[in-house]
Design a protein around this nucleic acid. Structure first.
Length: 299
DNA sequence: TTCCAGGCAGTAG
DNA sequence: CTACTGCATGGA
């Protein structure tokens, strides 16, 4: 990572495609927590309690990060750079995963077709959990609408060139809400209760990214997460993958995953958990990436 | 109209 | 243990 003149230049690894990553972020959904333009993404993020707004473009074998709202000191720039590396999962060598894909009779086409697609993270665990609750069992268009209402109502924003850029609401804010307030945003009673419960757990310090991280194994991380009401097997696996960058997660029950696996196995029904496990077996240690690539086949 | 979406908890057997 | 049900809305 190089920092010169208030800008950050991050070298990208082999098997990286900015275009594939942007495609993932775009996908036709209206997301309120970043903004995609032609060849760039603008993202608001908080570093050390300070609100930053960054624009990420592609350079020559690099990502170029520009600070849009202020010119912070080099230490902060360093942290912003690390955050971007985290978001795009840049510090991962995908050679082995690609070798496994290449050896696979049905999936080897992904090596060329999806080349360089990375696991785009949701570094904020609280946000990731809320997003799962919102997305549970409803169509993604409506899920994005619900998220937008939550963020625009209870989040904070900064303005850049006349446009507001929103930060996800703080747990302390959502923890103070009552169910009826979220129901006016068209949350179901259940989604409202789960969201407030998760916010309360974070606000009280019962749950945090560090607390989940400190568990010795993925299995125990899953168990810690699933103790929270509203967090089941699907959500726990999803957030371990997206927020903690664990590589061995399969969000069992995911309808998109079921659709993709059923299609490769030529089933006219949902695959059983055993069939999903068998399908994933050759990708031991790379399950999360395979999930991302299977979802990619659907869009 | 009915069915089902990037599920989950609660209950019954 | 498995099977079923309510939840909320919108698109196919």
């Amino acid at each position: 990572m190089q920092i010169t003149d208030g800008k950050i230049s991050i070298p990208v690894p082999a098997l990286f495609s900015f275009q594939e990553c942007l495609h993932f972020l775009d996908r036709g959904y209206d997301d309120c927590l970043y903004s995609i333009g032609d060849g760039y993404v603008i993202k608001p993020l908080e570093i050390g309690g300070k609100k930053q707004l960054i624009r990420i473009k592609e350079g020559t074998n690099s990502l170029e990060v520009e600070m849009l709202n202020e010119k912070p000191e080099p230490l902060i720039l360093q942290l912003v750079g690390r955050w971007v590396e985290d978001w795009f999962d840049l510090n991962r060598d995908l050679t082995l995963f690609y070798k496994l894909l290449d050896e696979h009779a049905q999936l080897s086409f992904m090596v060329e077709n999806f080349r360089g697609l990375r696991l785009m993270g949701i570094p904020n665990l609280f946000e990731a959990l809320c997003w799962c609750v919102i997305g549970q069992q409803i169509n993604l268009t409506f899920a994005h609408r619900l998220k937008r209402r939550l963020v625009e109502t209870y989040g904070t924003a900064i303005s850049y060139q006349g446009q507001p850029y929103y930060y996800f609401p703080k747990p302390e804010v959502l923890a103070e809400l009552d169910v009826e307030q979220l129901k006016t945003l068209q949350f179901s009673r259940q989604k409202a209760e789960y969201t407030i419960g998760i916010a309360t757990a974070f606000a009280r310090g019962e749950l945090s990214k560090d607390k989940v991280k400190s568990q010795p194994s993925s299995e125990q991380m899953l168990q810690k997460l699933q103790r929270i009401r509203g967090v089941g097997k699907w959500t726990a696996n999803y957030v371990l993958m997206k927020s903690l960058a664990r590589m061995d997660c399969i969000p069992y029950g995911d309808s998109g995953l079921n659709t993709a696996v059923a299609s490769f196995l030529k089933l006219d029904r949902k695959p059983t958990q055993q069939e999903v496990n068998n399908f994933f077996a050759p990708f031991n240690g790379w399950e999360s990436y395979l999930v991302i690539y299977l979802w990619r086949t659907l869009s």
